[in-house]
Amino acid sequence: MNIVDIARVPEGSRRGASRRGAARRVGSNAILIGAGALLFAASAAATVRRYAYMATMSGTPMAGRWMISAIWAPMCGQTWLHAAASFACMWAVMMPAMMLPVLVPMLMREREPSSDSASIRSALLTILVGMGYFLVWILAGCAVFPLGAALAAIALRVPAFAHAAPAAGGAVVVLASLLQFTSWKAKRLAWCHDMRQRTRRAPGGACAALLRGMRLGLNCGTCCGNWMIVLLALGVMDLGSMAIVTAAIAAERVAPCHGHVVRILGLAGVAVGVSMMVRGF
């Protein structure tokens, strides 16, 4: 349709088409939000159940008055491969509960339905974007386990290392929280906010959608990676710590005055880390 043809279309028809397009977008976003809420609830329930199960497994008392979680070592009758698979399963279950509050607004920008067939295609591509996003986080969990298992093994064999672990964990929390005040963090948050505001641009195909999701996951991971480090230092099996970190990640992404929120969260993290260091000495 050229400019002359558009000019010939009655104004009422154009307004009607605009209203129908807006209605389709609202309906599509409502479905996406509803599906995200259901997945969030399922992930949160499964995470709580998993944590309750792991709570029944007694950890190992360590020098320095702390307990090492059973997730970092094979349980009775398990191999290291089984332990790694168990951790990856737990990590994959809890990631939707942690990251969906920031992912859904980005996924809403991937939808641009114009007809029923386009809506179905858009929905399938959105699912692929989400799969690519969480694939990155699952791979990150697979990389985290060897590091955590190695540190746990050292703590079990070197009492001095175990005794210093609580204070060292506090120092890690302080350093991770100080990243909130850097230009490195500001640039990545700016990218995330720009992603939420930019014009909709649906991926061209299945492979492009999957790669798009992986790119979103990589950028999101670098943006909130310092908070994931805080969670690991506080204890990945601690539900309270997980809830606080999830709230912090969501707040710095969606808050209107996110610059102030980022700095407030950084100060709170530094305070928590210093408290851990004091208790560890």
Rank of each mutant, 00 (worst) to 15 (best):
A52M: 15
R196Q: 14
A251K: 12
A168P: 01
P159K: 04
R198I: 01
L128I: 10
I229T: 10
G130K: 00
G204L: 12
F281V: 11
S183R: 09
M242K: 04
R279H: 13
Q197S: 14
A149Y: 07
I249V: 15
R15V: 09
A92S: 14
C89S: 13
S18E: 14
G64F: 00
S115D: 05
V102M: 13
D194E: 12
R20N: 01
Q197G: 06
A167T: 09
R157G: 00
A41P: 06
M277L: 03
A248S: 14
V102Q: 10
V4I: 15
L179E: 06
P146I: 03
H163N: 02
W191Q: 01
T60S: 12
D194V: 00
M95Q: 12
G141W: 07
P61V: 06
A202G: 01
F145V: 04
I154P: 00
Q197T: 11
G12L: 10
Q180I: 00
D116S: 09
E110K: 09
A247R: 08
E252L: 09
A271L: 12
Q180C: 11
S13N: 05
H193G: 06
I31H: 02
I68R: 13
S275D: 13
L128G: 04
V4S: 11
F145W: 15
A45N: 08
L210A: 12
V48R: 15
F134M: 06
I138M: 12
V174R: 03
V158Q: 04
V245Y: 11
M54H: 12
S183P: 02
D116N: 05
N226R: 00
A186Q: 11
A202V: 15
L178M: 10
D116T: 11
R24S: 01
A208F: 05
T79R: 08
L216P: 00
L125M: 08
A88C: 11
V129L: 01
L147F: 08
I138A: 13
M75C: 01
K185R: 09
R20I: 07
A250F: 12
M276R: 04
F161I: 04
T56C: 09
A70D: 11
V278Q: 05
G169H: 07
V254C: 13
A190H: 04
L107D: 06
L232A: 13
M1V: 13
M108P: 03
T79A: 03
F134E: 05
R215H: 09
I154Q: 02
F281W: 13
R24F: 02
M242I: 10
R188C: 00
L265T: 10
A7C: 07
M195Q: 12
